[in-house]
Write a protein that binds this DNA or RNA. Structure first.
Lengths: 402, 402
DNA sequence: ACTAATTTGTAAACGGCCATGACGAAATAG
DNA sequence: CTATTTCGTCATGGCCGTTTACAAATTAGT
């Protein structure tokens, strides 16, 4: 577990606030929100000492945040120490909520998360989406969103934004799906298909999964490499608490890192890419299984049961992952590598070979490998929380929106 | 970690100015300096419109910067347009200077750069440093620094900091050389050997080379991957205009990215690392040459002359580089890849094979490869400029220092 | 039980910083 | 020669956090 930060500092948001007196005030509002959010309940004086402002300044900031409905006063604290007890502040359970959505290969999911970080509404629809037209899928997703939003509104929440996790490459405009091979989508502008009216952010599921790990994972450091696999293999690079997106938004394509330069040809144009060894198709073939919806469970079950062919397939996938990760670790020097998504569930059979490669190839300076506790829930939670974080990072936006 | 705030603090520690009114003023002072520095000469009104402040505010900022000796008034501008002509401001050619130093495998170099970015003093000593004790080498380096500082001081410059480029891995404290295989140095604390009194920053030569490319290179974008090779192969990742250093400061170890997982064993513990194919030793062996000091010139000369064995060696090195870079590009999605250091001089024979691999393996989404115009001068210039940038990024420090 | 000490939250005065608006100065346009 | 435009500066005002002071609420000590 990482030591509690001496100061609850909001990670520098995507779009920095202007460097003016008003921008300073907005950043201080954010610092108050983050401090209270991190501790759950805090007095004004405690916030002041934590973020380095005076009690008087914090008082005016808190007044404003209460007026906007982002904080609420819980009443006097239980007096344990000497002196007048403070009045406990907490992040409001009403007000803005983050709507997260996930487009999986064989399911759709939507949830609403309040400012406290609690999931307040959910909706899921199972069924394969592969090859279906984006319009149809988005229509169904929109219906789920409507249901979740209605449920949230009945709990006095209002949607502050919609974030959609997609199994594919997303352009930096956070609207266009450039390529989602497992859905057969290409250059699809989700911005025009999804309901307008709220801020919208579309991103790779690996990215949202990594953010969930950063924000919700136990002891996840601000510098790590998050690897996830559904059908393709994606990774997300988090540096200093921020996602590394790349010029075109395509960073993290671990699946196409060359593992054996003379290996089998890949659809990407290369040879011997990681996906040729650790991708779903490759593992299925090596395990001698047919494609199914609940593939991960099946693989885990067979491996558990002692199916030697399945175990060998997973072992080989782990080896390939280890080779690719050796390159990534040498290049990025992350604090840890986190296995998420489907890899989390299969980690008992992947990890030994993976770690053998990784530590064997990096003598001494090995990078620890951890398994995500969020597993397949990561992307959806990360999406919803990304909206919540946007509000915490700049609480003043809600004032403009009323 | 108890570090005195004044001494041994890395100039570009990345630590942002405090978020207060005074911090805001300091940032605005920096914006004025950057604006004037970028244009060479600018009136107060032009600065104001460029950085988004009012003329009145800029006036007071400029007054202060002139009082500190960082800006100087050149007098009225040539009136070409309507209205009263402005008074041209320029960055002062006197005052603080950045001292850059480079410890190469077969040379030492020091230079002084003024705030305008011009090199005002140099000193070089040739001779192999491999295997010599750090104390002895640093003693010689210190002598060179003294000469350069004396020359700078006679030109009314005073050293604002010392930055040292080293061919090896440097810890994040910017003082300790963890491993420099080509010097045979291990866990050497340069901070205690180098002259005190100034802020000190030790860093990898690849990092400083990348910064030089960022700051001085023609048209270098803020997101790129800089590859350099002296004996080992180092890379530096620049994201959004900032170096990615990694948790331990070891990011960019491209030389130990696996290229052929079953290839020859490497000192790092791995097999088939890039260095086994494109490192100096490997290229020498393939080319059938003996180690020499001016190896790069020799290789270029032979290749130019048509020596087929040398050309094949460089071609193979390019291929291996291309494979390793394919992985890096997939992971980081940089805007360009820049070849610097010794690779720049050999690029005519490396590039064809390198680009063939890179574009062939990344179908369509290829990443352009550029060659550094700075070549072997990069690290030294980057080091000196890093000190200058630190002053431009926070001009108020010079006021504290007098 | 009563006083002293400590801590919290708020209010008023203060100082730093930039914006606004006005003014003189120095050029061009007609 | 006048009107116009632009530059640099000054006085004023608003925003924002700090300083200082004070009442309220609790514990510690007698």
């Amino acid at each position: 577990m990482t030591a509690p930060p001496h100061e609850a500092r909001p990670p520098r948001a995507g779009r920095a606030l202007p460097d003016t007196q008003q921008g300073m005030r907005r950043r201080n509002l954010a610092r108050v929100m983050h401090a209270v959010s991190a501790e759950g309940s805090l007095s004004r004086a405690a916030v002041a000492s934590r973020i380095g402002l005076t009690r008087a300044a914090v008082s005016t900031l808190v007044d404003e945040l209460i007026r906007w409905g982002l904080l609420e006063e819980l009443g006097p604290e239980r007096p344990g120490r000497v002196g007048r007890p403070g009045s406990a502040l907490a992040v409001s359970g009403r007000g803005p909520a983050g709507i997260g959505a996930e487009i999986g290969v064989d399911h759709l999911a939507v949830c609403a998360v309040d400012l406290r970080g609690e999931v307040r509404a959910r909706a899921v629809r199972h069924g394969a989406n592969r090859g279906r037209a984006p319009q149809v899928v988005i229509e169904e997703l929109t219906a789920l969103v409507s249901r979740v939003v209605a449920e949230a509104e009945s709990a006095e929440l209002w949607p502050a934004g919609l974030a959609v996790a997609v199994p594919g490459l997303v352009a930096r405009d956070a609207r266009t799906v450039v390529r989602a091979p497992n859905l057969d989508w290409h250059d699809t502008d989700l911005g025009s298909l999804l309901p307008g009216g709220w801020p919208l952010a579309v991103d790779n599921e690996a990215n949202f999964g990594a953010l969930a790990e950063l924000w919700l994972g136990a002891g996840t450091p601000p510098d790590f490499l998050h690897v996830s696999a559904e059908i393709g293999i994606g990774a997300a690079v988090v540096v200093d608490g921020r996602l590394l997106r790349g010029t075109r938004g395509f960073a993290g394509e671990l699946g196409h890192v060359p593992v054996r330069p003379d290996g089998p040809a890949c659809a990407c144009g290369g040879r011997g890419c990681l996906e040729q060894y650790a991708g779903e198709e490759a593992v299925l073939r090596a395990a001698g299984l047919e494609p199914r919806e609940d593939l991960v469970d099946l693989l885990a079950e067979r491996a558990e049961a002692g199916d030697e062919r399945v175990r060998a397939a997973l072992r080989d996938a782990g080896t390939a992952l280890g080779i690719a990760l050796t390159g990534a670790v040498n290049l990025l020097d992350p604090e840890t590598v986190v296995l998420g998504g489907a890899l989390a569930g299969l980690s008992p059979w992947l990890l030994p070979a993976l770690e053998a490669e990784l530590t064997g190839r990096t003598a001494g300076a090995a990078c620890p490998v951890a398994v995500s506790g969020l597993g397949p829930q990561g992307p959806l939670l990360g999406a919803a929380h990304s909206v919540v974080r946007a509000v915490l990072d700049d609480p003043a936006v809600v004032a403009e929106r009323s």
